[in-house]
Design a protein around this nucleic acid. Structure first.
Lengths: 354, 354
DNA sequence: TCATCAATGACAACCGGTTGCCAAACTTTG
DNA sequence: CAAAGTTTGGCAACCGGTTGTCATTGATGA
């Protein structure tokens, strides 16, 4: 009675339990479950039945250790609480789950060091990673990509597969929109210095502005948080522009709040365009005109590209670059440029009363 | 020359590499790194130096397989895109990282089946789980908690450690607030039928309403999405109430939008109270009065309780229940009850004119 | 009917650590 | 100086699978 039980009462069943139950070797069970063709169909059926009966679930740790593949993919985002990443995360999660992978989500806290150390750790526990809005240098990113399969989102480094969100072209659309409303002095409220997408957007914007003969000045940098919006709003007002294109909706919404506090009307006195169309952009006050893009789809595409890289079985050259379309969604935060505004709003008191 | 290299060029170093470099057995290396006292200090230092030199990083998979502990904790939320969970997730992430654990975040898609199967899978790959707003039955939850360490958030099941957010008492505060503004006919816009916190809130609300002699009716259920707010708003208007307490801010914000569309002013014609104080509650139009609670702290506390359960080393009885305080934040979506409203809006005709 | 070959399934090594057990070496005590 | 006690570190089994190798089996062809 004191001998070992064939199957311990509470311990999850292993292939050895199945093997014992069927009277075959454990390796046969392994093959029956992972390489069905290598095993007699009758044996296989017996094994499958036993597995079902025992409610067998393979141990992913053990599988990872022996096969080298973990069945997990790391997803790195700079800030989980930034609504922009919600849909992205949901997109990656959906696509990964559909492919039977587990998502390891990590908030890198907008820090390149955290990002780098996370990558190093993930190198063992994930088959690949999706990196959104990396804060790493091009070189560091390239080096990391050499060590493990990687797809970046919104970060263009030659040699590293990427999903790019075409905000530069949307930025031109936004500029045209503002020009058509009569604005001629416009500001770009820049994002963090380490954000490549902020740079790309600014480049596109200044080129487009030159082509169209309007003045666009760059203000900032501003942290991508609503709190930074106050400083951004003050800077915009002080610079005398009548319209702003913000790095993202967080900054834009923060500006909306600050302008309201200061009694500056949007869009009558100042027009604001955001970017990303995050949760909240449609119900803030006034609802925000913004550049929208299919973020969830971007997440899904990034995962697809990564998985294609991991399992090169199916034909079709692995795409290494994918650009997501973007469009301008006009709501109520943009309107005609103030008529007399050119000579008054920001600096009038001082010279006017002198 | 063809013999095996002491350390293969590109493969991450293992304890065997360290052992070879120091001329000791692999087990000694293992002990030196995990049980330093079991090893001579000089040997240990040599090993530590070699480990540093090789840039050794332990393989968490292998460690998990042999020790049984994975160093990971699963965090299950019903909907990643619900802003309520952002701060919660950030709280768990911070606390877990501080303790050297990895967070496995899973979106259970508001489905009890996904939740159950996720738990089963996590049983192998995580040391414990934090379950927010579980959709499972009490029995299922209790059974799951017997199989692996678990802490729930916002779910009170005897025998399962939990962090509870004291929204019932905040609900009473909200009720008092509305009463003090002159409201006497109030609606509770209920959440999903499977949400226990919705039930708890309703119970507290109806008891408080009875004590205070006001009428509170229950409407719904409504899915916790802004889209449901439209139906909720219509139901509220039709029922003739002058104030609503919504299950959460998502529904409340949706109501705000719908009421605006229908030309019903908030708070002049209708007062709205939300719950959770999510991202957006402060900048929607009008800014939402809502019940706020320290969500991030709730996440941290949940993780602390779970870790205490996993490592019962340090003294101090493990708390099995923790209640987070909640308070009402009054913004602009609540105001005095409409003066004549008592006799007019929805059902006045029938009794009033009879 | 015998040789050839493909299909099948068992054995054992291996992934990278952890840990129980034991022997050698060293320290302390009588 | 010997006996007893304490460190210290090595051996080997083990966690739960995967996979290379090989013997056995049955079917096919000559």
């Amino acid at each position: 009675m004191a001998t070992t039980q064939p199957a311990a009462v509470d311990r999850p069943p292993t292939i050895h339990d199945i093997a014992a139950l069927c009277g075959v070797a454990a390796s046969t069970v392994s093959r029956a479950l992972s390489t069905p063709d290598r095993v007699n169909i009758r044996t296989r059926q017996r094994i499958e039945a036993a597995a079902a009966q025992l409610n067998y679930i393979p141990n992913s740790q053990a599988k990872a250790l022996s096969s080298g593949r973990t069945g997990a993919v790391g997803v790195l985002v700079p800030d989980i609480t930034n609504p922009f990443y919600f849909d992205l995360i949901r997109g990656t999660q959906l696509q990964l789950k559909a492919a039977g992978y587990t998502q390891l989500l990590v908030d890198t806290e907008e820090s390149d060091e955290v990002e780098a150390s996370t990558m190093e750790q993930l190198r063992k526990s994930a088959d690949g990673i999706v990196v959104a809005a990396s804060r790493l240098s091009d070189d560091a990113l390239l080096a990391a990509a050499a060590k493990m399969p990687m797809v970046t989102i919104n970060r263009d480094v030659p040699g590293v597969p990427a999903v790019l969100i075409d905000t530069p072209s949307a930025t031109s659309q936004a500029l045209d929109h503002l020009i058509s409303l009569g604005h001629t002095r416009i500001a770009y409220m820049a994002g963090p210095p380490t954000s490549q997408s902020s740079e790309r957007r600014w480049t596109a914007l200044s080129v487009a502005a030159e082509e169209r003969g309007v003045e666009v000045r760059r203000l900032g940098p501003f942290a991508p948080k609503t709190q930074s919006g106050a400083a951004a709003a003050d800077a915009a007002v002080h610079s005398g522009v009548t319209a702003c294109i913000a790095f993202n909706d967080l900054i834009a919404i923060g500006m909306l709040q600050r302008l309201r506090e200061r009694g500056i009307r949007v869009p009558e006195d100042m027009s604001i365009v955001g970017c990303d169309d995050i949760f909240g952009a449609d119900f803030c006050n006034p609802p925000l005109s913004t550049m929208a893009s299919p973020i969830e789809q971007a997440g899904r595409v990034a995962v697809s590209m990564l998985l294609a890289q991991l399992n090169p079985l199916a034909g079709g050259g692995t795409r290494s670059r994918s650009v997501m379309p973007t469009h301008l969604t006009v709501r109520a935060s943009t309107g005609p440029a103030p008529a007399a505004a050119v000579a008054t709003p920001a600096t009038p008191a001082t010279p006017g009363l002198g």
